[in-house]
């Protein structure tokens, strides 16, 4: 090692230096700045109820079964945010076809007024994370008749709510529009209990 001009001891010290500066000081410094300047985001964009209790995060989807709520996308982990994941079905996997057909049939039973030609495929496919907070605006609109029936809120009001809770693509073009299901359902709760 001598002829190369360094020893293993030097290398261990170099590793330690990088470990402390890049592994510890760097994230701690960014944490200090992030917490100071952008506290809400840094804490996970949490959503609180009127009593100040955490009811979720704006960014993390939740599972909704009740007919009076808008439903989220399919999630094989049932929106358990202690983990994340999807079943990783290949396009040719028979389980994918079977699951989609089942979900489509169940959707038709729950939304008899809407034809399946108006059911966008994001609603019956598993998201990548299993925690997708959004559905497409079309997927929200396809649920309006059902939610109107069970909540007594008229369809026009619901359509307006969908519009206000749609996150447009960044700068108008980057990404796709998505309706935040948790925030939309919160708004429905407010309308229901004035």
């Amino acid at each position: 090692m001598k002829k190369h001009g360094f020893s293993i001891w030097n290398l261990m010290r170099l590793s330690l230096g990088v470990m402390v500066i890049c592994g510890l000081l760097y994230p701690l410094a960014v944490t200090a700045v992030g917490q100071g300047l952008f506290n809400k985001q840094a804490d996970g964009s949490l959503v609180y109820n009127s009593e100040g209790k955490v009811i979720g995060s704006e960014l993390i989807g939740q599972s909704f079964d009740e007919p009076g709520y808008f439903h989220s996308r399919v999630s094989s982990i049932n929106y358990d945010a202690a983990g994340s994941g999807s079943p990783n079905y290949a396009p040719s996997n028979p389980n994918l076809i079977e699951r989609t057909i089942q979900d489509t049939e169940r959707w038709s039973e729950q939304n008899p007024e809407v034809s399946i030609e108006d059911l966008p495929n994001d609603l019956v496919t598993n998201s990548a994370s299993g925690l997708d907070p959004h559905i497409s605006p079309e997927a929200a609109l396809s649920q309006v008749p059902r939610v109107a029936e069970f909540t007594g809120i008229n369809e026009k009001t619901l359509e307006n709510l969908i519009e206000t809770h749609t996150q447009e693509p960044s700068m108008g073009i980057f990404g796709s529009p998505g309706v935040n299901v948790l925030m939309l359902n919160l708004a429905i709760d407010e309308k229901r209990t004035p």
């Binding site: 489509t104 399946i116 030609e117 495929n121």
Partner: peptide
């Protein structure tokens, strides 16, 4: 199956992206 698919293949993708 007849569902609407103009947004492309959405299995394993996120809506916002």
């Amino acid at each position: 199956t007849g569902i609407e698919h103009s947004e492309g293949s959405m299995e394993g993708k996120e809506v916002r992206l």
